[in-house]
Structures are given as C-alpha cells and as structure tokens.
Design a protein around this nucleic acid. Structure first.
Lengths: 208, 208, 208, 208
DNA sequence: GATGAATGAGCGTTCATTCAT
DNA sequence: GATGAATGAACGCTCATTCAT
C-alpha cells in the first residue's frame, strides 16, 4: 500500500486552487455562451458565475478572447477524445466499413455538447486569436490521410492529400448541417439515413 | 382628354435621393465589414463612411442588424445572379458535364466579392434577425433538385431530396473551404484540380 | 333668406386651411400626449398624426414647447368656458349655496378631458414657455374675489385677497387630488361626499 | 473563547467608498435638478458633477429614474425628519393650538431646500418608477388622523378619514402655493398672515 | 406654402479592463 | 494572490430642427 503523505506540499495546494479557478472560469464561460450568447457574454458576468472576482479572471486570462479560446480548445479536446476513443480498429477495416464508422464518429462528435457546439459555430467571430477555430481541426485530416495511405491499393483516387480534403470536408459539412440546421431531421431513422447517404457519397468516391 | 406632361413627375428626384442614401449605406456597411470586421462595424462609423448622418441611417434601417441583413441579401442576390446566368443549358447536359459545370459555377459564385463572403461566413453571429441567414440559400437546393428529377433514370440514388442535400452541401463546403481557407490552393491549376475532384465526388455518388 | 355667395374668396379658403392645419396639429399633440406621454411626444410623430409634414408644423409653431403650450391654452379655454357656463346666477346666491355650486363647478372642470388634464398636470415640465401653466388660472381668483366682494357683509374674513387665495387654492387642491389620485373614490356617492366636505370647509371658513 | 480583534473589519473601508460614491451621485443629481432642471439632467452630467464615472453611476443606480427617485426619497426623509422633530407635544395640544403648530410645521417643511422642492413638484414626470411619488407622503395623513382621533370629541366633523384628507390636502396646497408661486409673499409678516389664515381655515372646519 | 430627407448633438447604457486596497 | 469599485471610450439610438426641392 502506498503511504499517503500527511500533509500535502503547499505549492500543490495552491496549484490545485489555481487549476480549479481556471476550470471554473472556462466552465462559466461555456455556460454563459450557451445561456446568453457570445455578444452578451461579459467578463464581469463570467467572473460572477465562476464565483471569482473580475480581477482574478484577468490574473488567469489576458482577456475575453482567451477565455473563449480556452472554451473552444476544451471543446475540441473533448471531441477529439471522443474521436480517438472510437477510432480503435478502424485502420484495419475495409473501406466500406471504415467510412461508415467514420461518418458515425463524425455524427457522434457533433453531439458532444451540441448547444455549445452551435454557439461556437454560429456566434464566435473568427477574428484575432479566435481565427484558428477551424470547423474540424487538422488532426482529422491527418488521421484520415493515414487511413487512406494504408489502404491505397483499394482506392480509385490519385492524390491522397486532395482526397482527404474532399472526404473530411464533405463529411464534416453534411454532419454539421444535419445536426445544426435540420434538427427536426434528428429522428433516429432520418439520422441513420443521412449517415448512410454520407457514407455512400464517400465510399463511391473512394472506390470509383 | 387630359394632356399628359412630357416630363416625368417631380417626386422621382427625391425618391432617387432616398435610393442613393440607402445604396450608400449598404455599400458602406459592406466595406466596413470587410475592412474592420463585424464587431467594429458601428452604426456611426457606417453612416460616416456612407457620407450620411446617423439619423438618416435610422430613417431607413431599424438598426445594425438590418443593415447587415441588407448586405447579405444583396450579396446573395449577386451570387444567385451569377448562378442563374451560368445555368443556361445545364438542364439538358448529361450528368457528368452538368456536375462539372455546377461545381465550376459554385467556385465562380464564391469568387463574387470573396472578402465579403468570408466576413459574412465567419463573423456574422447567427442570432436575431440574422439567424435565418443561410450560407447557400434554398434556391440552390431547388435548382439542383430540378436537375436530378429530370435526369432521374441516369442516377443511382433513390431519395432525390436527400441526394440534393448531400450534393449541394458537399459542393458548397468544398468550394467554401477551398476558396476561403486554403488561399494558397488558388493557383489556377490547383483550383482546377479541386473542381475536378469535387465533380468526381458528386458524379460517382450520383452514378453509383 | 340670406343669399349665399357662389364662390368664397380665396383668402378665406387658405385662411381656413391654415386654421384647419393648426387645429389638426393641436389635436394631434393632445392625442399623443394622452397616448404616449410627454417624453415620447415627438414633433415628427405629431406631424404624422396630424397628417401634415414636419416642415408645415414648424411653419405654424416655432417648436415643440409652443405646441404643448397651445394644447394647454386650448384645454384651459375649454375649462374656463365650462366654468363660465355654469357660473350664471352664482353671484346672487347666498354663500352656502354659492360655495356648493362653485365646488361642483370645480369638479366638473376637472372632468373636461381628464386624461389630458392628468398628463398636463403630471408630465409637463413647468419650464420656459410652459412655466405659466398654473393649476388654476388667475381668472378664477378674480371671479371668486368678485363674489366675495359683493357678499362682504355675510363674511367673517377680513382680507378678501387672502381669502380668495385660500379658498381657490383649497378647492382646486381637493378637487385635483380627488379626481386624479383617488380615482377609485369616483363612485358618485364618494364624490358627492367629497364635494360636500370641500364646500363645508370653505363655508365654515368664510362664515366663521 | 476567540479573542476579538480591537480594530474593525477591513471591509468597512471599501463600503465607505461605495457609500461616498452613492452620496455624491444623489447630491449631484439634486444639484443638477436645481441648476439645470429635470430635462437637462443627464446621467453623464450627473456623474461628471459627482466626480465619478458613468460606469460607477450605473453600478449603483439602474438609470436616471432611480437617481431622481433617490433624491426624492432623501428630500422626503429630510422633510419628515423636520416634521417629526417639531411634532413633539402636538398630540396633547387643543385643536386651535395644534392646527396653528401644524400649519407652521408645513411651512417650515416646505422651506427645506425649496428650490429642489420646486423642481420636484414642477418638473418630474409622474411616469414609470416616478409615478408613485407623492408631494406629501402618506405618513402625514396618518399623523394627522391620529391627532383627530384622540381629539374626536372636540370636533364637528363625522368622517375622520375624509377630514384628514381635506385638512392635509388644503394645508399642503396653501403652503406649497405660498412658498413656491408667490415668493413676494414671503415677507415674514405676509407669511405669518398666511399661516394664520390657513390655520383659521382648518380650525373653523374642524370646530364647526 | 408644403414637403420630407437630412442633420448631428446628445442621450442612456454597456463592458473590457485597471488598480488601490 | 484576490478583490471589486472605478473607469471611460464607445455603442445604439432619438428627435428637435433645417432646408433644398
């Protein structure tokens, strides 16, 4: 059995407190973005909801933009975690099966905190520090590219770079539109139909 | 019989003045959106750039949102005019040729004032009056759907509604990403390659 | 039978038109004051409701204040007409009867367009041209004073000037408060009780 | 037992700062009302005169109306303090003496910052939050009523409620008009005459 | 005279950010 | 470090008034 230290070193305690404050601020920002929208999300309100003074907010974040950037960062990490979790085994699947799986993953990824996702997609001005908020980050391209490379012989496409761009962009757009703009479509069967159709698009493209 | 005056009624003069003011305001809004971004586009600045007083601005537009909405409206009209101009004859083309043409049109459409297009896509908060602003309006679905219907026998898809959604969304996303986010790609040959690849995606999907 | 002129002189016609415009503007001002309150009563809105251009408004009235002043003037004329109409014979009445009649008149006067009366009393800033808006104009003092003088022997007061001030002020205040602030009191019997009590106040004062 | 620190808690300092700011704002509002009138009293001007930023103003007051309401509140408190200070012993006085005292009190009350009193009476639109602002608050009715009840047998009036209304309204109106509109009357002797006459009005009414 | 488009000072208000405590 | 009162530039918007037509 591991011996537990009776007292924790002070530094750690304060570090933990810092982390907790930072967490609280990011969480508060996310909640306010969802509740009030970007334009009404003020630093004072965020600090208040986080149970922290505005002064402290500025101790940890240089400004509003950073706060929002951190929310985006965290959201993308969560999405990528979901993606990575689901990705196991895909590399070994044949194209048809793999693509179906990938589309399903994309849908699932869009359903991680969809309200926040929507605000981030629709209300955040892609300007300054926030410019980097790509719809689907570059890791996806890399992952998909890797798959294509290891299945190159089954494919009817020449330029894998281009093909990755085409596939990832299409899947992302279909999923995004479906989830955000056609929420009525979200009956399970409609969603399945769409998933299937998206997969068909990509499969036919890749296999010629 | 009453003799009709040869000259036009007087009122036209002042109507023209109004029209000019409205035009100037919309144009100024567009220019400021491009130059300064949405967040820095204030009614006072817009009025100033339009060479008009704020008061006049509010005589014609109930607020900033309306102004931006008018800019979007105008931009979409211009795009749709481009699309309609190019569309002649497409209905009678075979699928391969038609799709190539359509993708080319989409690219061309995205090159109508691409800086403005980018701001509209990236910085306009989809909130309030601006909520219903679609990147690609529904007319496109309708046009594409019409094509699919009249070529139904050549196609390997069942649900034309769904197929329209899939195709239009994909083409739009590819074009959008290509034109806006990968400006390096904009060498003519790269663009041609992309156009070709987008067309291939859709053609293979439709023809099975 | 009086011979009617076949055509009216042009001057009269235009004078009538002017009068009609002025009337319309005053009426519109009164209606807007009642409907929207003083602060929201703008010259543009007044002109619009009057069916006249703002320009014309300024042809007849030098500014907003004048318009409001005209409304007050008109309202006071109407009140004084009511007062004068009812006043016949009061001069010859004995004090008790006369005072009762006068209080009744005051109540009646407060019921000429009570909504307008209320706005004028509560929302018009007594400043500039509008300063002269006395609650009850000086004609009342004069009329009452005249009565007191011609009944001097029946009275137990020395200074008739002072007595007029005391009586007119009291009656006016009682009536005003009753009509404006205690509108629930306006059941006929409550109002009668108040009238009677006001009369009693003044009668006892005057008769000692 | 925990030893109590001799010095006061630290927070008092900042609380005092807040209090000072609030005080300064109310005082500045009062001064601007007197100096410039209600219509020219803008939040920016008030803040400036208070030596405080507009932001601070809005930290403590939700808007201009609240500021004015606070001024009215404070003014009424001062008046009521004056009234209460003078009221000692009145309850035990006989009617004649009591009424004379009460009228004198009313006059004195109207001389607490009469310029401010005038602005509040003449320029404040009785609208919104300011609607319920009475010139003379209901405490006066209560106080007077209490006196009447404890001297009921000396009185020639039936309905004490009604009598209170009649007396308080009359005294208030006489005092108000005398102090505010007939400033010439303010020679000491004229004022005394008026006080006496007001007292006479009420005494005769109450004693029959 | 009549029109109504145009004006622009000025209003009430918000909010990212600072800094004395 | 933490606090929160204070800041003030800047915003969206109104409206009495003017003046070219």
């Amino acid at each position: 059995m591991v011996r537990r230290p009776i007292i924790k070193p002070r530094k750690v305690a304060s570090q933990e407190r810092s982390r907790a404050t930072v967490e609280a601020l990011i969480e508060a920002t996310a909640r306010i973005l969802v509740r009030d929208g970007f334009e009404r999300a003020s630093t004072n309100r965020i600090a208040e909801l986080a149970g922290v003074s505005v002064g402290s907010l500025y101790q940890y974040f240089p400004g509003k933009e950073s706060l929002v950037a951190a929310v985006i960062e965290r959201h993308q990490q969560e999405i990528m975690q979901t993606v990575r979790d689901e990705l196991a085994g895909v590399l070994d699947m044949p194209v048809e099966q793999a693509v179906r799986k990938l589309v399903a993953i994309a849908v699932k990824a869009h359903r991680v905190d969809p309200k926040l996702h929507r605000v981030l997609a629709e209300q955040i001005p892609r300007v300054g520090k926030l410019e980097k908020v790509a719809s689907f980050n570059s890791e996806n391209y890399a992952l998909f590219r890797t798959y294509l490379e290891s299945h190159r012989d089954e494919l009817a496409v020449d330029d894998l770079e281009l093909a990755s761009f085409v596939c990832v962009t299409s899947i992302e757009a279909l999923t995004h539109n479906a989830v955000l703009h056609h929420s009525r479509m979200l009956s399970d069967e409609a969603m399945e139909a769409l998933t299937e159709e998206g997969a068909r698009l990509v499969i036919r493209y890749l296999k010629g």
